[in-house]
Design a protein around this nucleic acid. Structure first.
Length: 475
RNA sequence: GGCCUCAUCGUCUAGCGGCUAGGACACCAGGUUCUCAUCCUGGCAACCGGGGUUCGAUUCCCCGUGAGGUCACCA
């Protein structure tokens, strides 16, 4: 049996978003589960659309997501080069073969003339077929005009690994362009040559290509090449509508998610789960489990909406599952600047308190700054508190003074603080909702914070009392 | 418009002739001595429509409807 080989073949025209990465994830999973190879090939045949540096960007994206490739532009491999712009002579050889076999010819028309044919067809509400205008005596190909495939219209039936049995009639087979007038091959030509030369056995790509598959099959026949297994992955849809997720909809660069502190494992789990599941109720899959359980046969045939809230939940789940030391290492670049002078042990304590509410690392500053710096007094925390706003200024002062004198003698362990706080409840006769809220607000000046005893214990005695005093003097 | 594809809660999905149509996210309510979060419990919420086939259709078939893709010297 031939080894299973898949590829991811983006054009370097920008960044990779969740939709684009999904085909890479599926191709990678397939290769890894079978012990095959995953190949990265850059389809840089459109020099006008190319974005400088995006080749590095794409490779970096795959690297940080852990989608390691076995062969690629930067690491080479047995079928190098892996950049189409460096393979022009290969396409030229195959083009000559087709010309010699009478299966390719020069397109004598200008772009404007072809466009006129096209508009004529459109105005008659008919699909445009270039082959209806196939020239009788095309000129010899000289690299200044496009080279077209001389198709052999016929019906096709084929099996798609995801969509199942597909078929089309001869009316969609046409003479498409193989080589553009600038000398670069079209995708339609180059990918077929490359997939064949690179021994790709499974071809996973988005549904925008399904309509062209019969034309590809026609070309495979003319070239005498065996097509790989085709697998059509439905699009990931933008949140609101029914359209394919795109950069125009604000689809984020996957590297931006990484920068915001999304875990690669969560991202891959989330992306793989969009349109795929293993038939059980399992939601969280480790990388290893994904590799074991993934199958093209269980990929959905319809598009799936991208819902960032689900990604947020999943990332939070992965964060909560991390060991504290591991999490501490991962968030090292996300601390607020005020934390700089604090010791590792203190920061770890703080991190332990916020771990369960952290959805992504970039939230760390807003969740933890109260532990490093005295936040400005916010009177509205009291005046708009549904319980506290009923109390007079004097009552608040009395409560805070009682709290202060009790905490003054505490050793500020969580256990001791808990005891003191309980004693204060009895002493003051106040409900926790009143007393604890007041102390919490006084010592944090934050709308939300971790549990009171835990927060005070981490803040420490000196800072806690200082903040109580500050609140007191403001009343 | 031609051709191709798709169709279960708001979202991601399970289901492959017989189920009170299950789970997850989100949302709502309650509990966890305070907030936020976590966690637990409960709740809301779906088979696009119409015909068939069948004892019985979410499931199979047909026709609609809706959505998407494609018809580039872009990939």
């Amino acid at each position: 049996m031939k080894p299973l080989r898949t590829r991811f073949a983006p054009s370097p025209t920008g960044y990779l978003h969740v939709g684009g990465v999904r085909t890479a994830v599926f191709a990678w999973l397939l290769a890894r589960q079978s012990g095959g190879q995953f190949v990265l090939r850059l389809e840089d045949t459109d020099k006008k659309r190319e974005v400088a540096g995006s080749d590095r960007h794409v490779m970096e994206s795959l690297r940080v997501l852990g989608l390691d490739y076995d062969e690629g532009p930067d690491i080479g491999g047995p079928f190098a080069p892996y950049r189409q712009s460096e393979r022009l002579s290969i396409y030229e050889q195959w083009a000559k073969k087709l010309i010699d076999a009478g299966r390719a010819y020069t397109d004598p028309y200008s772009a404007e003339e072809v466009q006129a044919f096209r508009e004529q067809a459109v105005s008659q509400k008919r699909p445009f077929l270039y082959r209806n205008h196939r020239p009788d005596n095309p000129p010899v190909w000289d690299d200044t005009k496009p080279l077209r495939f001389k198709s052999d219209p016929k019906s096709y039936k084929w099996r798609d690994a995801i969509l199942g049995d597909l078929s089309t009639g001869p009316e969609i087979i046409d003479d498409f362009i193989l080589v553009k007038s600038d000398g670069y091959p079209t995708y339609n030509f180059a990918h077929i040559i490359d997939d064949s030369e690179m021994h790709i056995t499974y071809l996973i790509r988005g549904q925008e290509f399904t309509a062209s598959v019969p034309n590809y099959l026609n070309l495979y026949e003319a070239l005498g090449l065996e097509p790989p297994v085709m697998a059509t992955v439905p699009h990931i849809l933008a949140p609101g509508g029914q359209k394919k997720l795109s950069k125009r909809d604000g689809a984020k660069d996957v590297l931006d998610y990484i920068r915001d502190g999304f875990l690669p494992e969560a991202l891959v789990n989330f992306i793989a789960s969009l349109g795929w599941n293993d038939g059980t109720e399992q939601e969280i899959f480790s990388r290893k489990e994904l590799i074991e359980k993934f199958s093209l046969g269980r990929v959905h045939r319809s598009g799936a909406h991208f819902d960032e809230r689900r990604l947020l939940w999943m990332n939070g789940y992965y964060i909560r599952e991390l060991e504290l030391d591991d999490l501490y290492e991962k968030v090292s670049n996300y601390w607020p600047p005020e934390s700089e002078s604090y010791a590792e042990a203190y920061k770890k304590q703080v991190l332990g308190l916020v771990q369960e509410r952290l959805k992504y690392f970039a939230e760390l500053p807003e969740l933890t700054s109260l532990f490093f710096v005295d936040l400005p007094l916010d009177p509205s925390l009291i005046t708009e508190h549904k319980q506290l706003k009923k109390l007079s200024r004097e009552d608040l002062k009395i409560l805070l003074k009682q709290a202060r004198s009790s905490l003054e003698t505490s050793v500020f362990s969580v256990a001791d603080l808990t005891t003191r706080l309980n004693e204060l409840i009895e002493l003051t006769g106040q409900k926790p909702a009143v007393l604890f809220s007041l102390i919490r607000i006084a010592t944090t000046q934050a709308a939300a914070s971790p549990g009171l005893a835990e927060t005070l214990a981490v803040l420490g005695k000196q800072r806690s009392l200082k903040r109580l005093d500050r609140q007191l003097s403001s009343l």
